[in-house]
Amino acid sequence: MSAETLTENSLASDFWQGVRLSMPVVVASAPFAVLFGALAVDNGFSVLEAFLMSALIYGGASQMVGIQLFGQHVAPWLIVLSIFAVNFRHVLYSAGIGRRIAHWPVIQQALGYFILTDPQFAVAEARANTGQTVGFAWYLGLGLPVYIFWVIESALGAVFGKLIPDTHALGIDFLLPIYFLGLVLGFRKRPLWLPVVLASAAVSIVAYKTVGSPWHVSIGAIAGVLLAVILPPHHSGVETRP
């Protein structure tokens, strides 16, 4: 299908179809955007910095990790490395979605990868699995509302976060561990999940007690990943790939 046969109308219709699919993601991510903004300010970020982090990084869990470590006065390079580590899963999304969007112009692909989040990947893959083309207009319709709301809500959260008087009574300081536990449990269907979690938990606690923060993050994570690498492949459920 050539570009000429795509009328503006069909592109607009593709775009709005994407927008409709984005709505659940917009709703679900709203509390996390506001929470991120509030926590960022609580950990020493300015409103502008919270806004910039959401606009430029655009990855919820990694932003939470970043501000958590920032609040603990961890070395800057280690904060950046941790953001990279948390976002590393995108490498797999990127490899997967690359086949679907290879027909786009390079500039559009570059933009497409910028907004490649967990739900963006999941919904786009689901569309590709039904045999439909993943077009740029549709993909942008899916991703743009999520991005715009994420950035605005982060800034709002940062503004209102300054107004929260007693962060302890409201549990603000412990919301991140709850959120991260939720994310960890969300991966529980993956092969080797339990051994990896147990190894990372045990090693990170020991490292926290001995080497100290923030090294427990890297050391614990490396322990879990190494375990997954070392265990025989038939345990990891990846040897049956076609």
Binding site: V86, R89, W193, V196, S200, V217, A221
Partner: peptide, 22 residues
């Protein structure tokens, strides 16, 4: 397969270290 198993383990491993010491 071992590299893929390691990549699969990354998110759970990293996130666990943020919860466990708490």
């Amino acid at each position: 397969p071992r590299v893929e198993a390691g990549l699969n383990a990354v998110p759970a491993a990293v996130l666990t270290t943020l919860v466990a010491p708490e």
